[in-house]
């Protein structure tokens, strides 16, 4: 399936990533509210890469599963990894003085959410939204 990606290196790449996400979401037929959800989720994931891993990549892919269409966002980096996955999924947990709402927020904004991370081995987050 069609796949496009944005390298996250500077803060402005976050804007580029979510722009791409919004366009793809629009093309896939998502409404305004879901477009905003997907765009916001990408913004969170991209900013986390920028803040905690320094650099990484956002990939956006159109997916189908048994007649369902959707959009899959893959955020990957080779950064420090997340030591305690349970903790970062709690509302309010932040190591940077942020709101700590990003990760649990993305989980609620999207339909499927999966984190693979090992200390010193980077982080890969996959989040999918289905067209209803």
């Amino acid at each position: 399936m069609k796949r496009s990606s944005v390298e996250i290196i500077t803060e402005w790449d976050i804007v580029a990533a979510r722009q791409l996400g919004r366009n793809e979401a629009k093309k896939a037929g998502f409404g305004t509210v879901d477009q905003a959800r997907i765009t916001t989720a990408i913004s969170e994931l991209a900013r986390n890469i920028y803040l905690y891993a320094g650099k990484g990549r956002i990939e956006i892919e159109r997916v189908t599963d048994g007649g369902k269409d959707g959009i899959k966002v893959v955020a990957s980096d080779e950064g420090p990894g997340i030591p305690d996955l349970r903790k970062v999924m709690e509302d309010g947990f932040s190591t940077s003085g942020g709101l700590g709402a990003g990760m649990p927020g993305v989980k609620r904004l999207m339909d499927e959410f999966k984190v693979i991370s090992e200390p010193n081995n980077g982080t890969t987050i996959t989040a999918t939204k289905w067209l209803h």
């Binding site: 509210v33 905003a36 959800r37 916001t40 509302d91 709101l99 709402a101 927020g105 609620r108 904004l109």
Partner: peptide, 8 residues
């Protein structure tokens, strides 16, 4: 809606 989903 996104603000609510983010739990802000």
């Amino acid at each position: 809606q996104t603000i609510v989903a983010l739990g802000i």
